[in-house]
């Protein structure tokens, strides 16, 4: 995402996380089922409010990539959060300066 934006400007946010998104439908070398292990939730907060959220299922490709649009209001922080099925959370924070 850009570092700066004008008030009311619509800009694109692109996020990607490295994760296998093991679907649970695949079989291993000996025909055993490989257990499902996926990221289930993605959340993006801006100015303390949820601006975008997503729920993932096994149909989402490995290393989930997402792009969405946000309207700039005022300077603030973007908090990106991913949560897997075991409750493990990955968090990244990025600042946006609005002129």
């Amino acid at each position: 995402m850009p570092e700066t934006a004008a008030i009311g400007e619509v800009f694109e946010v692109k996020v990607m996380i490295q994760h296998d998104m093991e679907s649970g439908y695949r079989r291993g070398q000996y025909g055993e089922r490989i257990p499902r292990n996926i990221i289930q939730h993605f959340r993006c907060r801006y100015l303390g409010e949820q601006v975008f959220a997503s729920e993932f299922f096994p149909g989402v490709a490995a290393n989930p990539y997402l792009s969405f649009l946000v309207r700039a209001q005022r300077s603030g922080e973007f908090v990106f959060e991913w949560e897997d099925q075991h409750g493990k959370v990955w968090r990244r924070t990025v600042g946006l300066a609005v002129q």
């Binding site: 409010e49 601006v51 997503s54």
Partner: peptide, 10 residues
């Protein structure tokens, strides 16, 4: 997948 949009969404 499902996607939710908030007040500041474009």
């Amino acid at each position: 997948a499902s996607y939710n949009f908030g007040k500041h969404s474009g």
